[in-house]
Amino acid sequence: MIGLEKGVTLITGNYGSGKTEVAVNLAGLLASRGEKVTLADLDIMNPYFRCRKAAAELEALGVRVIIPREGYFFADLPIVLPEIRGAIQRRDSVFIGDVGGDDTGARILGSFADVLARNPYKLLMVINANRPFTDTVDGCLGMMDEIEASSKLAIGGIAANTHLMDETDADVVRHGFRLAAEVAEIRGIPIVLVAVAASLARELRDEPFADRLLPIERTMLPPWRRREGTGPGMFKIRQIAEL
């Protein structure tokens, strides 16, 4: 990853691009490296698969997780907690915001425009090239324009996250990186991370993007799937050199 170790990182993208898995795994990785991390649920769109589910594991790693609690956990309501404004302004820790999908989900960021104007932030666009509407360069550019228009913020980096769930292989990741690279070049912004299933990271260690790999352990699995290595230990530090 490039330049995500400090400050405010806001993670946007279209529905199902993998924003939450990227946010959760990024928070876990930084925390396991000893960084002070806050992860905030800014998703006002999707009540099904959200970073709330990984909260306990992240908290065990010392991550401050800001999510609706107790009676509001399952509410089908656009809840944004007041402490998020304060958390964004803290300079002593990394802030990661998991934003809802599409331009509709990104609209929430407009309400933080005043705070973000005073605090350096990076707005990332997560791209999965196998998802509808972001499977072409034009589709990605259009989605970026929409997200920027509704969030009133500029996208400053791309998180390449191309996969096909269990059917992902190294070529799927390479294809996604190529598409993301085209988009990045047109917009003049960097690809700051390439998310890959942890099991694929070793195979990709010689790729040009190997310095930016974020190994992903899926935290949101369907009920018929069991996760290996469940527990706080899942976010192990994975230096590329060790892969």
């Binding site: 529905y15 999965n128 509808p132």
Partner: peptide, 13 residues
């Protein structure tokens, strides 16, 4: 080629 889709999107397509 295969696409990664939500059930709801796939039902629409």
């Amino acid at each position: 080629a295969k696409k990664l889709m939500k059930g709801n999107e796939a039902i629409g397509e």
